[in-house]
Amino acid sequence: MSAYAALSRAVYKAAVRDATTVFFTFAFPLIFLVIFALIFRNQEVADTGRGYVDYIAPGVLSWGLANAALFGVAFTLMQWRNDDLLRIIRLSPTSIWSVIGSRYVVALGIGAAQCVLFVGVAMLPVFGMRPDPTWPLAIPIMLLAVTAFLALGLIVGSAANTPEAVAAIANCVVVPMAFLSGSFYPLELMPTWLQEVSRVLPMRYVNDGITYAFTGFGTMTDYLISCAALVVFTAVFAVVGVRTFRWSNDS
């Protein structure tokens, strides 16, 4: 077994054996879906003939993907460093890229599972989501979203030395970003200057891209811009993440 496969397996098992991780990754976004469905029950968006769920679901899904990717990698990194596991890896001939790569492939798998579960539930008659035939366009955006937020998680995981710090920093990053990116609340209803602020936030592009894929809201150009923006964010976060990376808490 390669180091990469073994580490992927270790990360996967650690994730699925933790009830909290499973809950926050899979159940939490669905709870949000239920809450929004109750708030906007039976309302249609003017002129489109679509239910609100078609607009709300992509936003909640974007947040759920970003949240799980960021928290997951930040926790793993902090925990592996604190538990001296990074030392064990550092003292073996395995490269740091196997470590990051294994965490990455698990994050992608979790992201894909989140999407399938979430969209599947949202399509149930009670919620009534109807994805457009362009829905496969959500796949590249999903992959890019997980990549960008995993890179951001590397930074958070290096900055934080305790689980509490990971939770505090990650929440401070993700929650305001979700609101400002229109994941929970339509951007169009916000002041113009806030809409401009959202352009420097990666979640906005996840949101735009997934919304376009599922509902056709926006243009293909916007969609491509979203993809490009996420690539840029990933590059920036990855550079900072590699620079802030620490094998241990001692110098």
Partner: peptide, 20 residues
């Protein structure tokens, strides 16, 4: 140092894999 939430055997299998 042990891999999070693994069994003793799984931990050692993972460490062995780090050395190929």
């Amino acid at each position: 140092a042990f891999f999070t939430r693994l069994t003793a055997r799984e931990h050692l299998v993972t460490v062995a894999a780090l050395y190929g």
